[in-house]
């Protein structure tokens, strides 16, 4: 079992030898589907190296690296994080549509930026530290 953190979610999946997992778990974690042409998301398919797929199991670390995303792990090998690829972050910002997000307010109510369409939004960070 491994815990895999993505930028917005946390998954618990059965893995072997690093991040090898079933194609269905790979889809759950990454959103990408294993097809004959590679890993696919909507119309886009990324071919997998032959060493990264076997018996309908996928090496998600190899796939994620191929996408250009960081794959990091805690020393114990039980908790991993898959980060967003730098190119994806840059492309999203350069498109100038404010990247959407959902975060809780202090009472736990989830709030989504795009709910505010139609208003000018001053989006500011702060911290108590």
């Amino acid at each position: 079992m491994a815990i895999i953190l993505t930028p917005t979610a946390e998954h618990k999946v059965t893995t072997t030898d690093g991040l090898w997992m079933s194609a269905s778990d790979a889809e759950k974690v990454t959103g990408w589907t294993l097809k004959p042409e590679g890993m696919c998301l909507a119309e886009r398919c990324v071919p997998l190296p032959v060493t990264a797929v076997k018996d309908k199991r996928v090496d998600v670390a190899a796939f994620w690296n191929k996408l250009g995303g960081p794959v990091v792990a805690a020393e114990n090998g039980e908790v991993w994080a898959l980060g967003a690829p730098a190119d994806e972050r840059n492309a999203a910002l350069e498109g100038l549509m404010a990247p959407d997000f959902t975060l809780p307010d202090v009472d736990g109510t989830p709030r989504t930026l795009s709910q505010l369409r139609g208003r000018k939004v001053f989006l500011a960070t702060w911290a108590s530290w």
Binding site: P7, F101, V106, T125
Partner: peptide, 30 residues
Amino acid sequence: QLIDTDHRLSDLYNLVNVPQAIWIDEQGRI
């Protein structure tokens, strides 16, 4: 007033300090 324990906003918008602000118009454009 939202709470961002993972600094998700810093990741999405490539922020480096507080306070930083982004201005977004009625169409959701930066």
